[in-house]
Design a binder for these strands. Structure first.
Lengths: 336, 336
DNA sequence: TCGTCTAATGTTAGCGCTAACATTCAAGAA
DNA sequence: TTCTTGAATGTTAGCGCTAACATTAGACGA
């Protein structure tokens, strides 16, 4: 405190102070300062106090870049998502980051924007920062991407799905079964004309297959499939393109809510329970919003944050089960 | 390709290959390999081809940790948000990351969870990775945090607000004026009993002040203020706690929609236009969802992704205007 | 008394890369 | 012919830190 007032170095005086400047000021060797930062128990209390004072005086902030190079540990994890502006993946990022940040790990975030080439570039960019693990939504879209990860020799966690041949670890759920569950439910409800709306990304497609297969197995006609652009809230207009349909599975809640909005405009939305709905709608994701609208949205609930937390755990523990099925839950409300 | 088959090193053969291993294989010095990676134009085409082949053979991935230490450039930006599982900030992160990733910058993401102590810890953690700039939502909550950033001698961008004494650059809008605009509109609509629901974070509070001051200046009684827990969709129940209120400004769209859901349950929500609503509701954020529900949500529209893009630009260009007001827009729909 | 042990601190070398400064050589200028 | 120039490549030193291995001194038992 006193020396803070008498000494330069507190304010913005040129370059950031280094370990050895702190060491000089405290009258110790740099390794001792390093120990104060990383293993304070190994340093005698008086020495430690002197070093800590010097660090405060100089406003020392350890340089983890140098530390990482020297120790071959970056304390960082690379995270690759299709997009972060999608609450469904944002929950996962929040979950894993809540788990990793207290442990001193930083999250390096990258977005593929559902673009295979960009995904490969981002994977390479992430790897060049030498993260200690990579967590990604889905699986690499290309063989190149796969090879990159396989050769990286660090824990890799694929999420939001249960790939047949995972690179390493998996935290997700069975998208095919989710589609099956929805179709089963709609069939049991007596629906006859099913349709699926959503993107054609790998996970959405897997949901579609499950949905279609189950519908066919139940003796229904093959459901219609409407591929919507992402960000396309054109799901509002989807109803017009699905004449005669009496049940819709939307690959995510946003599409489901948009579709319901279209139904409302068309006057085919009731305030009553599912049985009263001319067109049943089931979403996926269980956005909070789904409970707030009317009729409340039936949906496949998936715990995005649990996926994130589980993925984080899988990066930390190398032993044990590497394939965690977090499951899903069909939450029935009023929309279908 | 051919040598890929004949040589070890392609597969997971021990440690990651280094520059000098590539150099040895290509028969050049390591600096030449480094040049092939960073300034290929300086290298003769034949040499370059040889080096590129060697890199491919070995599966070389540059080590940016070492590169950063040597060059004092990390090509990374630290990003601090209260939470990422909130579409409003997720848009901003997406915007800035879309701008930065193509330029070779990585985003290091940290969450403060609206906790001042955690914010300070995360700021220190970010700075220890020596990012070339920091972008944060809001301003540091503590003097310590401020000092940390001020001493870092890198571009700092505060967003989502227009602080009076910014550390460096700013990309945001005037939260106070947003509150004023909403109050003005409600007053013009003839509303008498105003209320504000939302969190008590700095930006929410600024909105509240603008809202209150304008209401008072218009001769109305002081509006009620209901402070809601974040994640609290208890906004559903808020109506019961606001007897007699005929207009509500919700600090964000999620709260607004939750509140409207409560109104619906209470039977005080009409399908008609704003003038028909017993209780007007105005949100903030302009979530896509707001247009999909019924009645459609009136809101203060803020371009979260533009804030992100602008913030990114401010980290890259050191000259020019450092205080960008992106403004907001009162979007009137049916809810108020 | 001597060796042995432990706690506290120090010395050395090097992580993988790049900045800054050589060096080499061929082509053109004077 | 000799000098100059520029394109291509190399050499050297060091970024800030930590792993691994000393070293020192005091405590303690035999």
């Amino acid at each position: 405190m006193s020396s803070e007032l008498t000494e330069p170095g507190t304010g913005p005086t040129g370059a950031a102070p280094t370990l050895s400047e702190v060491a000089k000021r405290a009258g110790v060797s740099s390794i001792t300062v390093s120990r104060v930062v990383r293993m304070p128990d190994l340093v005698a209390p008086e020495t430690r106090a002197r070093v800590e004072q010097a660090m405060r005086d100089l406003g020392y902030i350890p340089n983890l870049v140098a530390g990482a190079l020297a120790s071959a540990r970056t304390n960082s994890v690379g995270v690759l998502v299709p997009t972060i502006a999608n609450s469904i993946f944002a929950d996962t990022v929040q979950g894993l980051s809540d788990k990793l940040e207290p442990l001193g790990f930083s999250v390096i975030l990258a977005q593929s924007r559902y673009d295979a080439a960009r995904e490969d570039r981002m994977l390479a960019a992430l790897l060049s920062r030498r993260p200690e693990a990579i967590i990604m939504v889905g699986s690499p879209a290309t063989e190149d991407g796969s090879r990159l990860l396989r050769n990286a020799r660090i824990p890799i966690v694929e999420t939001w799905d249960l790939p047949a041949n995972p690179i390493d670890a998996v935290a997700g759920f069975d998208n095919y079964k989710a589609g099956v569950a929805v179709a089963k439910h709609l069939v049991a409800q007596g629906r006859k004309q099913l349709a699926f709306i959503g993107g054609d990304d790998p996970r959405g497609t897997r949901r579609w297959f499950g949905f279609r297969d189950e519908a066919l197995a139940s003796g229904l006609a093959e459901p219609r499939r409407l591929i919507l652009d992402r960000k396309d809230s054109g799901s509002v207009a989807a109803h017009a393109r699905l004449p005669g349909v009496d049940a819709v599975f939307a690959a995510n809640d946003a599409h489901a809510i948009g579709f319901m909005s279209g139904l409302r405009k068309a006057g085919v939305l009731r305030d009553g329970p599912a049985s009263a709905q001319p067109v049943a709608v089931i979403g996926l994701g269980d956005l909070e919003m789904g409970q707030l609208i009317s009729p409340t949205l039936s949906t496949i609930s998936v715990h995005g944050d649990a996926i994130g937390r589980t993925a984080a755990t899988l990066t930390l523990e190398r032993g044990g089960e590497r394939r965690i099925d977090l499951g899903f839950e069909l939450v029935l409300r009023d929309s279908g």
